[in-house]
Design a protein around this nucleic acid. Structure first.
Length: 365
DNA sequence: TCTGGGGTCCTAGGACCC
DNA sequence: TCTGGGGTCCTAGGACCC
């Protein structure tokens, strides 16, 4: 039987979870983010319901901007614990199917399935998820890249979303044929037709920076990337990244699905303060607080820290990170806090501080 | 309308050692 | 006196993703 990759992506996840306990909000413009106060500065939209997106509200947008674009929206505070629980529920449901599941985030997973009819499997999965009062879109592909991009087409159906980043709002004819099922298949057979004319930024793994640098090499479209000289790409982007970009252009990619949870390589905590910090004692105290919290969380997992990094963002948004290897790996919270303060001390700290962050890197298990 | 929080991986340059 | 390369560790910074 052929091996298929499915990419399952929950629709408007945090908003959808909120709808389960606030059914009266279904179909309304709902914006989840911050503490639920649209006037809260320096907080952004985590998830906007589809009706809210109709007003131009997007994830990552300041809450105040969202409030202006959509004054009638209902603003809800983030409730991470509830989303995490809902995510677990979904992932466990996916594991009941004859598939191997790789969790990609709270609202996404890759599935490897050996089946003849992947659309039928996808329909069954969508029905099961509907039983949880949630909906999802499913991309079907012959590798992870194509499955992931297929989800963009699946979402475009009936929701009026752009099919792909930078890809415009055109919906492929096949998607129309699918009748708004929220399922789409992208393979080597339709890759060229659907993807090759799109900008390189439509690819998963190519962001705005790399797209810009490719553009400077005269490479704008996916087709041009596929035809590019690998030597040139390697010279510009390095021996690993360069050839990898070329592979992306061909729609080739990984098919391996890793079911084991990934072992974290680090753990961090950062905070943007409602008002900039100018007092050195405050900056020290906040750094110590973040370091304590993150060190305690790491200690609770039994992992050992061997590097400590501190990030400082000033009011001009200038952001820098410094880090230090510890003399010896440790789980001692006080030692980690001291190390963080010593790293902090290497910064100039001559401007108001907007954000502080502490990151611990962990000894591999 | 000023721009969140939590991750991963790659690259480059200097130090240091053989 | 002057000059090799290779390998590894360390830090800074960049880029991507959800």
């Amino acid at each position: 039987m052929p091996r298929w990759l499915l990419h399952v992506d929950l629709d408007q996840f945090q908003a959808a979870v909120e709808f389960r306990r606030h059914p009266e909000l279904r179909g309304r413009a709902v914006i989840v983010g911050g503490n639920g106060d649209p006037d809260q500065p320096r907080k952004v939209v985590t998830c906007a319901s589809y009706p809210a997106r109709g007003y131009g509200v997007r994830a990552g947008m300041p809450l105040r901007t969202a409030a202006r674009k959509c004054p009638d929206a209902v603003f809800l505070p983030l409730d991470m614990a509830t989303y995490e629980e809902a995510s677990e529920e979904v992932m466990n449901l996916l594991r009941t199917f004859p598939v191997r599941v790789e969790v990609l985030g709270w609202d996404e997973a890759f599935l490897a399935a050996d089946v003849e009819d992947p659309e039928r499997l996808a329909r069954d999965i969508r029905s099961a998820i509907a039983e949880l009062d949630l909906t999802c879109s499913i991309g079907i592909g012959d590798n992870k890249l194509r499955a992931k991009l297929a989800t963009g087409f699946a979402k475009a159906v009936g929701k009026g979303e752009p099919a792909l980043r930078g890809g415009g709002v055109d919906t492929p004819p096949e998607a129309e044929d699918a009748g708004g099922t929220g399922i789409f298949r992208l393979t080597a057979d339709n890759w060229t037709e659907l993807i090759s004319h799109r900008p390189t930024s439509a690819l998963w793994g190519i962001g705005s920076r790399i797209a810009k640098r490719l553009g400077e090499l005269g490479i704008e479209s996916v087709a041009q990337l596929a035809d590019a000289d690998r030597q040139v790409l390697a010279a510009e982007f390095g021996p690993t990244t360069g050839p990898y970009l070329w592979v992306l252009g061909h729609g080739a990619g990984d098919t391996e699905v890793v079911t084991e949870p990934r072992i974290p390589v680090g753990h961090s905590k950062s905070e943007t303060f409602p008002h900039d910090l100018t007092d050195r004692a405050d900056i020290d105290a906040q750094t110590a607080r973040l370091a304590t919290a993150v060190a305690e969380e790491v200690a609770a997992t039994g992992r050992i820290t061997h590097r400590v990094g501190v990030t400082v963002r000033t009011n001009t948004f200038y952001t820098r990170t410094k880090q230090r290897k510890l003399p010896a790996p440790t789980t001692d919270v006080a030692e980690i806090v001291q190390a963080a303060l010593q790293v902090l001390d290497r910064f100039e700290l001559d401007r108001p501080v907007r954000l502080l962050g502490v990151r611990l890197e962990l000894v591999p298990e």
